[in-house]
Nucleic acid binder design. Structure first.
Length: 755
DNA sequence: ATAGGGTTAG
C-alpha cells in the first residue's frame, strides 16, 4: 500500500547553508531614541561642579553658571547627560529646579530630557518608595512634556510597584504622539503581568490593525506570545483559535514567532489531534513569507505521520524543499520512523544508508545517529527481521562508532521475545548488563511480556521478583501484562491478587490496568466482578473507553444478561461514544447465535446507515448463521454483496461456511466452484475446507475430483487430519484404491501428471 | 512537562 507515493523523494533534499534565516528576520525597529553624546569634557566638568558644591551654592557658582546658561543655551542632550551622572534622584531634582529657576524663559520642552534622566535615576533607586509618581506630578505642574522613554519608565515603574491602575490612567493621559510601539509594549507587558488580558488585547488590537501607525515589533511578539504559550491561567479565556488569529495578525506586520515558540504551539496542536489547525498555521506563515526553520516542520511531519497522512507528509516535504528549509537529523528520524511504521522497512533502510555519504554537493552533512539506528532496528524487529536488527546493531557499533543504548537493547529484546526466541532475548539482556547498560522498567516489561506470551507466566513472575530484589520496580504496564496473562489462562484469583498488589505498591495507576482486568473478567463470564472493577475504575477517576465498553457488552451478551448489555450500550452513548464495528458485530453475533437472523440483518443495515463499515466479522457471522439455518440463498447473496458492495475479501472461514452448507445441500458443483474462486482470490483452503468437500464428493462418488483435491493438499502442504483420513480411508478402500491413500500420506501426487 | 525523531501493556 502507498508504494506509489514517493516518500523517499526526501532523499533529494540537499542540506545547504541556513544562515539566510538569520538575516530574514523582519523588525519595525521602534527603539527608544537616546540623546546623542555631547562633548564629554563639558559634561564632566558640569557634573564635577555640581557634585563638589552644595546645591544652595549653585546659583552663585560662576563657572557652573556659564556652563549651564551661556548663550547659545546648552542642548537638551547635554543637560540629559549631566542629570544622569548625578549621584541621586534627590540631587537631580535640585538640579532641575535650579535649571528651571535660573532660566525662566527657557522652553519647557528642553527640560524633557533632563526629566527623563531624573526618572531613570529614581527608577533605579530600590528604596525610592513612590517618588516617581510624585516626580510625574511635578513634571505636569511644571508643564514639562514627557519623552517617550520617560513615559515607558513611568509605566514600567508603576507596574512593578503594583500600581497598575495608576499606569492605566497615565497611559490614557499620554499625548497620542507618545503612545508609540515601545510605550505600548511596556504597557501591554504591565497589563499582562497583572492578568488584565482583555485590556492588553484592546491596546494590542489597535497595533494589529492593517494600516496601524503603531505596528507591533519583535518585542511585542515576544511579550504577547510568551504569555500565550505558558498556559497561564490568565490566558485560559483565549481559545486556541484566537491565539492562532493573533499569531497571523502579527505575521501580517512582518512579526513572526520565534522558532521555539512556533514549534511548541504546533506540537501542542498536533498532540491534541488538531493537525489541520497546525497545518493551516504553518501554511499561512509560509504564505506570509515568514522566516521558518526546520523544527516546526518536523513537529508537523511527526503529527501527520502519527495520523497516517502520508500524502500530506510528502506535500510538506516538497514545500520544505521549495522554501529552502533543510531537513535535519530529526526530519530524517521522522521519515525513517514513518517508513518503518508503514512496514516499508527496506525503503527506510535505503534512507538510512544514504545518510552521511558526503559525496560532494549532495546530502553529506547529516549523519545517521543512534536514534535513527534504534528506529530502524525496531522497525526490522516489528516485521520479524530481528536477526537483521541484531546485525545492524553490530554494524552501527563497528562501522559508525555509535554505541547502542538502552533503547537499542529494548527493541532487540522485544523483537526476539515476540518471535518466541526467549533465550536470545535473555542473552541480549545479559549482554546489555555486560556492556554496562542497566535495564530499565521497559526492559523488565518487555521480558515479562515475552515470557507471558509464551506460556511461562511463573517464570515471568519469578523474574519480576528477582528484578525487584535488585531495585527495579514494576509499573502499571508490568501489572497489566501479568494480569492479562493470568486472565487468559483463567486464573482470575491470581489476576485479582496482582491488581491488589499493584494498588498497595502505590505505583501510579493507568486506566489500561482496569481495562485489562475487566476484559479478562468479561471473557471469563464473571460479570459481577467486571461491574465491580468498572466502579473502581470510575472511582479512580478514569473513564471506560470504547474498547472497554465493547468487552462489557460482549460479556453481558455471553452471559445472556441482555438488559445489562443494553444498559451498557446506552451508558456508552451517553458518554458520547458512537458504536463502532466491533460493537455492531457483537450484537449481530448475539442475534445470530440466538436465532434472530432477521434482527441480525436489521442491525447490519442500521450499521451501514450509521456510516460504520461492515467488516469480515460482520459478514462472517451472518453468512455462518444463514448457512447453519439452511438459508444458503441468503448466505450466497451476502457473499456476493461482500465482494461487490463492500469489497471485503472473504477469508477461509467464510468459504468454509458456504462450502459446508452447499455440500450438505448436495450442491457439490457449487462447492467446487467456490474452491476455484478461492484459488482465484488467493485464499488458502485449510483442512476443514478439504474435509467438507471430500464428504460431498464421497456422497456423489466423484473420485477423480477427490484425487485432484488430494493433489492440491499435497501441493499446498495442507496436512490431513483424522477426519480427512476417516473419510478418504473408508471411501478409497471401498473402491479398492487404498494405495492412493498411502501415496497421499507420504506426500506424493495421487493422479498422474497431465498436460 | 513545555521546541522536534526511537522502546513496553487491554
Amino acid at each position: 500500500m502507498n508504494t506509489a507515493i514517493p516518500i523517499s523523494k526526501l532523499l533529494l533534499l540537499k542540506p545547504q547553508s541556513t544562515s539566510y534565516i538569520l538575516t530574514r528576520h523582519l523588525s519595525t525597529g521602534a527603539n527608544p531614541q537616546q540623546p546623542p553624546q555631547e562633548d564629554d569634557s563639558k559634561t564632566n566638568r558640569a557634573v564635577q561642579l555640581l557634585l563638589e558644591n552644595p546645591h544652595q551654592e549653585w546659583p552663585s557658582n560662576q563657572p557652573l553658571h556659564s556652563l549651564l546658561f551661556s548663550s547659545p543655551s546648552p542642548s537638551p542632550r547635554f543637560l540629559y547627560n549631566v542629570t544622569r551622572n548625578l549621584a541621586s534622584s534627590a540631587l537631580a531634582l535640585h538640579f532641575l529646579k535650579h535649571l528651571q529657576q535660573n532660566s525662566p524663559s527657557q522652553d519647557t520642552h528642553s527640560l524633557s530630557y533632563p526629566f527623563q534622566a531624573l526618572f531613570e535615576l529614581a527608577a533605579r533607586e530600590l528604596d525610592a518608595g513612590s517618588p516617581l509618581s510624585e516626580l510625574y506630578q511635578a513634571s505636569k505642574e511644571w508643564g514639562i512634556p514627557l519623552t517617550v522613554n520617560a513615559a515607558a519608565i513611568l509605566i514600567r515603574y508603576l507596574g512593578t510597584h503594583k500600581m497598575v491602575d495608576e499606569s492605566v490612567i497615565l497611559f490614557n493621559e499620554l499625548d497620542p504622539s507618545l503612545k508609540n510601539t515601545h510605550v505600548r509594549n511596556v504597557f501591554i507587558d504591565v497589563l499582562l503581568c497583572d492578568g488584565r488580558l482583555e485590556c492588553a488585547l484592546d491596546v494590542l488590537d489597535e497595533m494589529l490593525q492593517p494600516s496601524s501607525e503603531v505596528p507591533p515589533d519583535k518585542t511585542t511578539g515576544d511579550i504577547v506570545l510568551r504569555g500565550l504559550l505558558k498556559g497561564d491561567r490568565k490566558w485560559k479565556n483565549l481559545s486556541e483559535e484566537n491565539a492562532i488569529k493573533l499569531v497571523l495578525s502579527f505575521g501580517k506586520h512582518g512579526v513572526f514567532p520565534k522558532t521555539s515558540w512556533l514549534t511548541q504551539m504546533l506540537s501542542r496542536l498536533c498532540r491534541s489531534g488538531k493537525i489541520n489547525q497546525a497545518w493551516n498555521v504553518l501554511h499561512e506563515l509560509l504564505a506570509l513569507r515568514a522566516p521558518l526553520e526546520t523544527p516546526p516542520f518536523n513537529v508537523l511531519l511527526t503529527g501527520l505521520g502519527r495520523s497516517g497522512d502520508i500524502k500530506r507528509m510528502n506535500t510538506l516535504m516538497a514545500e520544505m524543499k521549495e522554501s529552502d528549509i533543510q531537513p535535519d537529523a530529526v526530519t530524517f528520524g521522522v521519515l525513517i520512523n514513518q517508513l518503518c511504521k508503514l512496514r516499508r522497512v527496506d525503503d527506510a533502510m535505503e534512507v538510512l544508508n544514504k545518510l552521511g555519504e558526503g559525496n560532494g554537493s549532495r546530502g553529506g552533512s547529516i549523519a545517521a545517529d543512534v536514534i535513527m539506528y534504534n528506529t530502524m532496528i525496531d522497525g526490522l524487529c516489528k516485521v520479524g527481521r530481528q536477526e537483521e536488527g541484531l546485525h545492524l546493531m553490530e554494524q552501527m557499533r563497528s562501522m559508525k562508532g555509535l554505541e547502542p543504548n538502552i533503547v537499542t537493547y529494548n527493541c532487540l529484546i522485544d523483537g526476539f521475545c515476540k518471535a518466541g526466541e526467549l533465550e536470545r532475548g535473555k542473552l541480549l539482556f545479559e549482554q546489555m548488563n555486560e556492556d554496562g547498560i542497566s535495564p530499565n522498567v521497559i526492559t523488565l516489561n518487555t521480558l515479562i511480556d515475552g515470557m507471558c506470551r509464551h506460556g511461562m507466566i511463573n517464570s515471568a513472575l519469578e523474574f519480576f521478583d528477582d528484578m525487584r530484589g535488585i531495585g527495579l520496580q514494576g509499573n502499571a504496564v508490568t501489572y497489566t501484562t501479568l494480569i492479562t496473562s493470568y486472565c487468559s489462562v483463567g486464573n482470575i484469583a491470581k489476576a485479582f491478587d496482582l491488581f491488589d498488589q499493584m494498588l498497595t505498591n502505590g505505583c501510579s495507576l493507568h486506566a489500561t490496568v482496569y481495562y485489562s482486568l475487566i476484559s479478562g473478567l468479561c471473557k471469563a463470564g464473571r460479570m459481577d466482578d467486571a461491574a465491580n472493577v468498572l466502579s473502581k475504575l470510575k472511582e479512580a477517576g478514569f473513564r471506560p473507553d470504547i474498547v472497554c465498553y465493547n468487552s462489557l457488552v460482549s460479556g453481558f451478551f455471553k452471559e445472556n444478561m441482555v438488559n445489562k448489555a443494553y444498559d451498557t450500550i446506552k451508558e456508552m452513548q451517553e458518554a458520547g461514544m458512537k458504536p463502532d464495528s466491533v460493537l455492531y458485530n457483537t450484537l449481530i453475533a448475539y442475534f445470530c447465535k440466538t436465532g434472530y437472523l432477521e434482527l441480525a440483518g436489521e442491525v447490519m443495515k442500521q450499521m451501514i446507515n450509521q456510516g460504520v463499515v461492515p467488516t469480515i466479522a460482520t459478514y462472517g457471522a451472518l453468512i455462518h448463521a444463514y448457512c447453519s439455518n439452511g438459508k444458503i440463498k441468503e448466505a450466497m447473496k451476502l457473499f456476493n454483496d461482500m465482494n461487490s458492495l463492500s469489497k471485503i475479501p472473504p477469508n477461509t472461514t467464510t468459504y468454509n461456511s458456504l462450502i459446508e452448507s452447499l455440500c450438505k445441500n448436495n450442491d457439490i458443483k457449487g462447492a467446487l466452484s467456490l474452491m476455484d474462486d478461492m484459488k482465484a482470490k488467493s485464499v488458502k483452503p485449510n483442512t476443514t475446507t478439504y474435509n467438507e468437500v471430500f464428504k460431498g464428493l464421497k456422497e456423489n462418488n466423484l473420485l477423480e475430483d477427490a484425487y485432484r483435491l488430494m493433489d492440491g493438499m499435497v501441493e499446498h502442504a495442507c496436512n490431513p487430519d483424522s477426519i480427512t483420513m476417516g473419510i478418504l480411508g473408508e471411501w478409497l478402500s471401498a473402491v479398492g484404491e487404498s494405495e492412493k491413500l498411502q501415496s497421499f500420506v507420504q506426500g506424493n501426487r495421487v493422479s498422474p501428471l497431465s498436460a
